[in-house]
């Protein structure tokens, strides 16, 4: 658990303006280990990127790390729009 958290933090902190506002929370659904990313409002667009290219890149890296158990990781940005 902590290793994925650490990875997400290491990737994202240098890319944002407010690294102290980065929060990661977990939610285990029946199929996925969900990592919910909470960011400062000004940083959300930057981390998602044009057409979501940045978040897609980050997801590729995060998902490439093997996790224990059957469930796959999912990285979700909480932008309050769902």
């Amino acid at each position: 658990m902590t290793s994925i958290d650490g990875l997400i933090n290491k990737i994202i902190s240098p890319l944002v303006d407010y690294p102290n506002d980065v929060e990661i929370s977990h939610n285990e659904s029946d199929r996925f280990l969900e990592y919910h990313l909470k960011l400062n409002e000004d940083d959300i667009g930057r981390i998602i990127g044009k057409h979501g290219h940045v978040i897609q890149t980050i997801r590729t890296i995060v998902y490439s790390v093997p996790v224990e158990g059957q469930k796959k990781a999912r990285l979700i940005v909480d932008d309050g729009k769902q």
Partner: peptide, 17 residues
């Protein structure tokens, strides 16, 4: 990674950085 996926993603990330 498969078809270079991971190293290309890391390269992208470096570019973004």
């Amino acid at each position: 990674g498969r078809h270079g996926r991971t190293i290309n993603a890391l390269q992208n990330l470096s570019q973004i950085f």
